[in-house]
């Protein structure tokens, strides 16, 4: 048992020695090497790199490396006035900033006044959204529009640290889109009423003061005039 182990340990050393020998042998005949140039030294590369390829226009967002496969819950079905082209098909796009009437949202409290409709909505294809680079994005993948500014959040959302997954922790990942939870025209979340506090245990009276105030434990503790407690 022990002998076989030491043999096994020896094997890589033997292989290494054999490899070195082979390398030395291969170096010995110098006939195959590239010719020495006029300056007296060999070019460093046998295959010098060609000219830099033309990068072309920057590619759109193609996803994160190692990102999990995620399918997004459709958002279009939840939109009350979709498809927008029902009305807009015969209207020319008016790029002038102005206040829109119903059925458009009256409020645009997002981006501190930097935005107007056409920052996110496609002026020509009214049923779609648009990125700042001009790519068309479906309403179902609004995350690609939001992620242009909220990059960290978009990465977290893709990997599952932000947002909500539908029903399962296991199997196919179906996640809600940004706009399912955040109103894109008014994304701030307002305070709301909480569910009720825990009840009092059956058979007990509620404490006179909620929280950590309790009757004085020691006689020298000061007593609060109003509640009669510490």
């Amino acid at each position: 048992m022990r002998g076989s182990q030491s043999e096994r340990r020896l094997l890589p050393a033997i292989a290494l020695a054999a490899g070195l020998g082979a390398a030395l042998l291969a170096l010995a005949p110098a006939a195959d090497l590239p010719p020495i140039s006029e300056e007296g030294h060999r070019s460093l590369r046998e295959h010098p790199p060609g000219p830099e390829p033309d990068p072309g226009p920057p590619a759109g967002f193609t996803g994160y490396p190692d990102a999990p496969q995620v399918s997004v819950v459709s958002r279009r079905e939840a939109l009350s006035h979709y498809p927008c082209a029902d009305c807009h098909a015969h209207m020319p796009a008016n790029p002038e900033r102005r206040k829109l009437s119903a059925p458009h949202p009256g409020l645009l409290d997002h981006g501190e006044g930097r935005f107007w409709c056409l920052e996110c909505h496609d002026a020509d294809r009214r049923n779609e959204l648009a990125t700042l680079a001009g790519d068309t994005v479906s309403f179902d993948r609004a995350d690609q529009v939001c992620g242009q500014c909220h990059g960290d959040t978009h990465r977290d959302w893709t990997f599952g640290a932000h947002g909500k997954r539908v029903e399962k922790w296991q199997g196919e990942r179906r996640v809600y889109s940004c706009a399912h939870c955040h109103n894109p025209h008014d994304p701030a979340v307002r305070p709301r009423a909480p569910e009720g506090p825990p009840g009092i245990r059956a058979g007990l009276e509620p404490m006179p003061d909620k929280g950590r105030k309790h009757p004085p434990v020691y006689p020298w503790q000061p007593v609060d005039e109003e509640s009669g407690h510490e």
């Binding site: 909500k164 399962k168 922790w169 296991q170």
Partner: peptide
């Protein structure tokens, strides 16, 4: 059976993350 715990499903803020610690690709 692969479903989320009720607290995670009910959370409207998405603050709760649940999953398998042995799965390196889990949330």
């Amino acid at each position: 059976e692969g479903r989320q715990p009720a607290c995670q499903e009910a959370c409207p803020t998405g603050a709760r993350i649940f999953g398998n610690l042995l799965d390196p690709s889990s949330e």
